[in-house]
Write a protein that binds this DNA or RNA. Structure first.
Lengths: 268, 268
DNA sequence: CGCCGGGTTGATTTCAGTCAAGCAACGTGG
DNA sequence: CCACGTTGCTTGACTGAAATCAACCCGGCG
């Protein structure tokens, strides 16, 4: 299984980890754009805005480490962040990759707890930060904000559940197909686009090795998926969808289909 | 991968357990005992209590189905609940197993959304239910309750992240070792206990087949783990811990992507 | 140039799933 | 009471997917 480096990489982190914040207090983006805040009233939004600042990171910069105390709520303004989980023995597992608009924290944390993952920038990234303490206070005053935070957490839970489902039940090829489909724009049937990050990371995200990913891509070629390094083209999205369903049909074990029809209410 | 069949198991338990469909408004347990409510003030707690009712289920009973509208917040008073995710093609994946004190919902849901998993009782189980609407209202009035709900969600996120980590990075043997360790009481070094549910379910939880689980157990026998159907004995917990770490040392991979510095403003 | 880093490809191995058989424990019905 | 079918678990033989090991290619760049 894909583990993210670790050992060697750590020290190099340390060295470069001075996290130079090009604290380009750059243009604060409208908070309204973040799903987390989409449904807030103007007043609360305004108060939040006062507290916000933006920091930028270069590729590979550590944003925070597993175990650090949570000091701020962080939202991705631009770029990608990978969340890594470090086991005591030292090897790292990629847990999730977040992009624009998502929050970096596992959940908008209130209490002064510790992160249980590390976060690292993938490519140049800017992060909006809100001091955790003040955020907590605001939350206790604004039920709407609390509700929004809870919604945010729910979104993440849904995401993680999806992840688990696909890890437990789907082949590498299938996971890749799904991943590609998730990147295809909705309108056109044939499309071409660029992977948001390099294949190494895609592999880690899907929970396979680089080599396996490469071979999976090769197999999908037959279904109209071509790649050239980071560029992907899909001949027909609908066709790929079909093939995706096809791949599912592989592993239908016992014909029983888990029918427990003893009680009438059944079916889906 | 293990998909849950759940087909036949129902009836036998029904018989054995003597199925009490008793909606015995039975003794409402003190809400304070649930982590979710542990930190609430008396007043809120009292209001919650008024709304609460307890329902009991027999093994295999469906508590709710993926897609159902969320009508209540549910907490496990006694027993176990398994959460299943059903793919469109029909096969089910076990997402999580929850036990006493945990909430069944993915997150205390406010809006009238749908469950994205199904829940089924494992063994005789009683569930505390609070009408979702009223819970939501209370939450908007009591920041403490909102905070508690958020905490609950955070716990779940942490749990799911752990799950993902272990699925991505660990062998079946290792996952099993970890699972066993999690069941060992803290104080003694050698211990024996009974699995909370049958091996079939344990297998599903670990994301392997029944057969693989059995073989894993066989391999752990060498490390002082014995089983006899549902009873487990561990010769030495510390030893098992060591072996657990040993199993980790297997796979140390390559220097990960992560730190590069293609974009000029880098350094530090 | 030559040397990366990222990606591909091939050969080999290993882990875990599948199929199939078998066994002990239990309850049921003859 | 015993034969029987279940259920839960274990074993064995086989297969297949993906990891591992190892070249190798190619575009960029010092």
């Amino acid at each position: 299984m894909e583990k993210m480096s670790s050992a060697g990489s750590l020290c190099s982190f340390e060295r470069r980890a001075g996290v130079r914040k090009v604290n380009a207090m750059s243009e604060l983006p409208p908070l309204r754009d973040f799903p987390l805040f989409a449904s807030l009233d103007e007043a609360t939004l305004h108060r939040l805005t006062l507290d916000a600042k933006v920091e930028t990171y270069a590729d590979g910069d550590v944003i925070f480490r597993q175990g650090d105390a949570v000091a701020a709520i962080m939202l991705i303004v631009r770029g990608f962040v990978k969340l890594l989980r470090t086991a005591p023995c030292g090897d790292e597992t990629l847990v999730s990759i977040r992009s624009d608009g998502a929050s970096v924290n596992d959940a908008p944390t209130v209490t002064g707890e510790a992160f249980h993952v590390s976060a690292e920038a993938v490519g140049p990234t800017s992060i909006l930060k809100l001091p955790a303490g003040r955020f907590a206070r605001l939350m206790s005053e604004s039920p709407a904000l609390a509700a929004a935070a809870l919604d945010d957490a729910k979104r993440k839970i849904a995401e993680l559940i999806g992840e688990i489902e696909s890890l437990k039940a789907q082949s590498a090829d299938r996971r890749l197909a799904r991943f590609i489909l998730s990147l295809c724009p909705a309108n056109t049937d044939s499309c071409r686009f660029r992977l948001p990050y390099d294949k190494r990371l895609v592999a880690a995200q899907l929970g396979v090795t680089q080599e396996t990913l490469s071979r999976s891509f090769a197999r999908l070629r037959e279904f109209g998926v071509r790649t050239e390094t980071r560029d992907v083209s899909v001949e027909s999205v609908t066709r790929l969808c079909l093939q995706y369903d096809e791949l599912a049909r592989q592993g239908l074990p016992y014909p029983s289909g888990g029918r427990r029809s003893e009680d009438g209410r059944d079916a889906v």
